[in-house]
C-alpha cells in the first residue's frame, strides 16, 4: 500500500465502510456477476442451462409481446401503487407531522402496523375480503348496489389494493419527515397572505415536501415492482407480473437463462428509475436548504 493511499484511507474514514462493503460484495454483487453469464446461455427444456452462448434470452424479452405485456403491467402496477400511496399518504403524513398531541406516536405505530403482520396472513386477509364470495362482494350484493360480484382479486385491482396497503407506511413516514422539517411559520405566512388551507398545502407544503415525496415514491415503486409474495397470492397463478414471472421461470420451468435475463431487465428498469428521480430531485433541491 502506498503511503499516500494510506493517508487518504485514514483521513476520509472510508475504511469504516469496509464491513458493509464486504457483505455487499459477497452477498449481492458476486451473485449478480455469477448470474450474468447464466443469462447468456441457451435453455434446454427438461435439463435447464444449455451449452454455448446466445443473446436469445434478451432478444426474446424485447420481441415477445407476452413479455411486453408483463413488463408494462408491472410498470403500470408499480406506478399506480406509487400514485395511490401518494394520494392516501400525503394528507395522513401532514396530519401526523403537524400533530401536537402525544397520541402521535401511537398513530405512527398504527401506520406501520401492516408491516408488523406476516405477509401471508395479510394477503389471505385481502383474499377473504376481495374474493368473489368475499366480504365486500357479499355486502355490496346484499344491499343491492351490484348485481354480479365485482372482480377485485387475481387481477390488477387486487394487486394495487394489496400493495398500496403494504407500502403506504413507507410513503407516510418519509413524507412526514419532510413535512416536519417545514417551519410552521411558512404555512402561517402563506395564510396571512390570503391562502386558504388547500392553497397552503399545494403552494407550500407539497413543493417543500418533494424530497420526502421523491424518496417515498422511489421506494414504493421499487418495492412494488420487485415484490413477489403479494403478487403471487393476490394475482393468482395466472395473472403475472415481472417478479412472479422470474420466479416461475426459475422454479417451475427451470429456465434459469430466461429467468436471469428477466431479472437483469428488472434491475435495469429499477436503476433507470433511480437515476431519473435522482436527477430531478437534484435540480429541485438546488433551490432549497
Amino acid at each position: 500500500m502506498t503511503n499516500r493511499l494510506r493517508i487518504w484511507l485514514n483521513a476520509s474514514g472510508i475504511g469504516l465502510l469496509s464491513p458493509l462493503a464486504i457483505v455487499l460484495l459477497l452477498a449481492f454483487i458476486a451473485p449478480v456477476l455469477i448470474m450474468f453469464p447464466t443469462s447468456l446461455h441457451p435453455y434446454t427444456p427438461g435439463v435447464g442451462i444449455g451449452e454455448g452462448w446466445t443473446l436469445e434470452n434478451y432478444v426474446e424479452i424485447f420481441s415477445d409481446s407476452y413479455y411486453h405485456e408483463v413488463i408494462l403491467r408491472s410498470l403500470g402496477m408499480a406506478f399506480s401503487v406509487m400514485i395511490f400511496t401518494i394520494i392516501i399518504g400525503c394528507p395522513l403524513a401532514y396530519f401526523l407531522a403537524r400533530m401536537q398531541s402525544r397520541a402521535r406516536n401511537w398513530l405512527v405505530l398504527l401506520v406501520i402496523f401492516p408491516l408488523l403482520l406476516n405477509l401471508v396472513v395479510r394477503s389471505f386477509g385481502w383474499i377473504a375480503l376481495l374474493s368473489k364470495h368475499g366480504l365486500i362482494n357479499d355486502v355490496l350484493l346484499s344491499i343491492g348496489m351490484i348485481d354480479e360480484p365485482l372482480k377485485l382479486i387475481f387481477n390488477l385491482t387486487g394487486l394495487i389494493i394489496g400493495m398500496t396497503h403494504i407500502f403506504l407506511p413507507f410513503m407516510v413516514l418519509l413524507v412526514m419527515g419532510s413535512i416536519q422539517n417545514i417551519p410552521v411559520d411558512l404555512e402561517e405566512a402563506a395564510a396571512v397572505l390570503g391562502s386558504n388551507r388547500t392553497r397552503v398545502f399545494f403552494s407550500i407544503i407539497l413543493p417543500l415536501s418533494i424530497p420526502g415525496l421523491l424518496s417515498g415514491s422511489i421506494l414504493v415503486f421499487i418495492l412494488s415492482i420487485s415484490a413477489l409474495v403479494t403478487p403471487r397470492l393476490l394475482g393468482g397463478p395466472t395473472y403475472k407480473v415481472i417478479s412472479t414471472l422470474i420466479y416461475d421461470e426459475f422454479m417451475q420451468l427451470l429456465n434459469w437463462p430466461a429467468g436471469s435475463a428477466l431479472a437483469f431487465v428488472l434491475t435495469l428498469i429499477v436503476l433507470v428509475v433511480i437515476w431519473a428521480t435522482g436527477r430531478f430531485s437534484k435540480r429541485w433541491m438546488a433551490h432549497l436548504t
Binding site: P183, E188, A189, A190, V192, L193, N196
Partner: peptide, 16 residues
C-alpha cells in the same frame, strides 16, 4: 386568510 393584514415573522418565513 381573509383579514388582509401584513405579518413579518422573526424568522422571516420566506418561501425557500
Amino acid at each position: 386568510h381573509k383579514r388582509n393584514v401584513g405579518l413579518v415573522f422573526q424568522s422571516y418565513a420566506l418561501f425557500p
